[in-house]
Design a protein around this nucleic acid. Structure first.
Length: 423
RNA sequence: GGAGAGGUGUCAGAGUGGUCGAAUGAGCAUGAUUGGAAAUCAUGUGUACCAGCAAUGGUACCGAGGGUUCGAAUCCCUCCCUCUCCGCCA
């Protein structure tokens, strides 16, 4: 959420942001809602002020006196007015809030113009795409795949997109999670094991609610939501709190399973491990001082890149254009790993700066030494990394002539073997 | 799940219908004192929103939401959370 002041005082800035993101949001009703709310607010406050003054007078009067009784009669009317206006004010307030929630975050000046994925800028590449397995096939076509990644049983037991990982597959998943957490820990992120269900307030603070409700799994009757990413519980950790300025930047990482209903996604993109309803991911989170959030974003991205480098996987970094930015993001890099069998790039991390957009909604602040007042932190996050797609890339890129998969050296100690065999 | 107690400012803790944004103490900040410090003394010390160039003024906030009342931290209702005891349990 943006500050209402930004919309009130610099609407042209916000309109430019909407245009850059190629969104269709009309600012006029937002501004009108704000104006209407302020008029009502002032009316209510004037009446309340009257009430308060009368209160003090009445406190000094003898209870049963005629002047007291007269005041009561007079104030009775004011009281009724306040009640009525206050109800309107609440409606206006809610309307304003809803309007405000429809306004996206402002992209950073370094974000390239563009409306489609083709407009994203290839910011960096690492590793040799041509050097990986010559006889690679898509991981889901590798003979024996279904034995280790049992989608059929998963469908029976739960539904499509909920595979069983069996034997070495399960072991490799565990190895990757441990590897990621260990490396992230070395990079200074404190490991957290968060709840994987969150309440509606938390889901609202990070923007899943109210609009993206259908993308989450929801429990009955408690109305808790299975987390779509560890970002949700992690970001909410400091919700409605004022953290110590000297502790910034705060860096945390967390492994959770992630649950996404992703209704409406079909086709080749969803085959095998490419897109699942439940998958494992380690998430990196930072709460930083506003003055350094873009530096911290670059560092965060490098921390995620480091993982791919250690695994020896070719990847590229995309700087996302305005049109491909999320609603609440100011700047975003995507990390895409090369999957030699499918011959395509798979997104395994998305590193974003939200500036104060999330922090405002979640009320996460620090007390500034400089001004002595609480200020909003900037929040950043990125995957470090998403497990199934990394797994797919390892399988495809490291597939040997004999059908086995060579385990990246950095993982061997975690996995316990040099090769993964499908039969 | 059952029974009880409780949720007030940075913290501890008073306040059971009116002048309470809220006593008192601690903490913190500034100043005095000191060679310097401790101690002591004085003053100050919440957040948000609105109006205003500003100084400043106004309003709200005592777990959350409703209600009663001219007036609610204080009374009533609902919900949430914490603690203690009991039960159940990975």
């Amino acid at each position: 959420m943006l500050d209402t002041k930004t919309i009130r005082e610099t609407p042209e800035l916000v309109r430019a942001a909407i245009a850059k993101k190629h969104l269709d949001v009309d600012l006029a009703p937002v501004i009108a809602a704000d104006a209407a709310w302020r008029v009502l607010l002032q009316e209510v406050e004037t009446l309340r002020s009257k009430q308060k003054a009368a209160n003090n007078e009445m406190a000094a009067m003898p209870k049963g006196s005629p002047e007291f009784k007269a005041k009561v009669a007079e104030m009775k009317e004011v009281s009724a007015q306040v009640k009525e206006l206050d109800a309107s004010l609440k409606v206006a307030e809610e309307a304003l809030r809803e309007h405000m929630l429809s306004v996206p975050n402002i992209p950073h000046s370094s974000v390239p113009e563009g409306s489609t994925p083709e407009d994203n800028v290839v910011y960096a590449t690492n590793g040799d795409v041509a050097a990986v397995s010559a006889h690679a096939v898509p991981h889901y076509d590798v003979p024996g795949f279904e034995k280790l990644f049992d989608f059929t049983r998963g469908s029976k037991v739960t539904g499509a997109g909920f595979p069983f990982y069996v034997g070495d597959a399960a072991r490799l998943v565990r190895a990757l999670i441990s590897f990621f957490l260990d490396e992230d820990g070395k990079a200074g992120y404190i490991e957290v094991n968060p709840p994987i269900f969150v309440n509606a307030a938390s889901a609202t603070a990070t923007g899943q609610l109210p609009d993206k409700e259908g993308q989450m799994y929801e429990t009955t009757p408690d109305r808790l939501f299975a987390v779509p990413t560890a970002e949700v519980p992690l970001t909410n950790f400091f919700r409605d709190e004022i953290v110590d300025e000297s502790e910034l930047p705060i860096k945390r990482c967390a492994y959770t399973p992630c649950f996404r209903r992703e209704a409406g996604s079909h086709g080749k993109d969803v085959r095998g491990l490419n897109r699942l309803h439940q998958f494992d991911k380690v998430e990196l989170l930072k709460w930083v001082h506003p003055s350094s959030s873009y530096e911290e974003l670059d560092k965060l991205r490098l921390d995620a890149e480091h993982l791919l480098q250690k695994l020896g996987l070719p990847y590229r970094v995309l700087l996302m254009c305005g049109g491909d930015l999320g609603f609440s993001q100011s700047k975003k890099y995507d990390l895409e790993v090369w999957a030699a069998g499918q011959k395509r790039w798979l997104e395994v991390s998305s590193c974003s700066n939200f500036e104060s957009f999330q922090a405002r909604r979640a009320q996460i602040r620090f007390r500034s030494k400089e001004t002595g007042r609480p200020e909003l932190v900037h929040t950043l996050n990125g995957s470090g990394l998403a497990v199934p797609r990394v797994l797919a890339a390892i399988i495809e890129n490291n597939l040997q002539a004999d059908g086995r998969v060579k385990i990246p050296q950095a993982l061997v100690a975690y996995f316990g073997k040099e090769y993964l065999a499908f039969n």
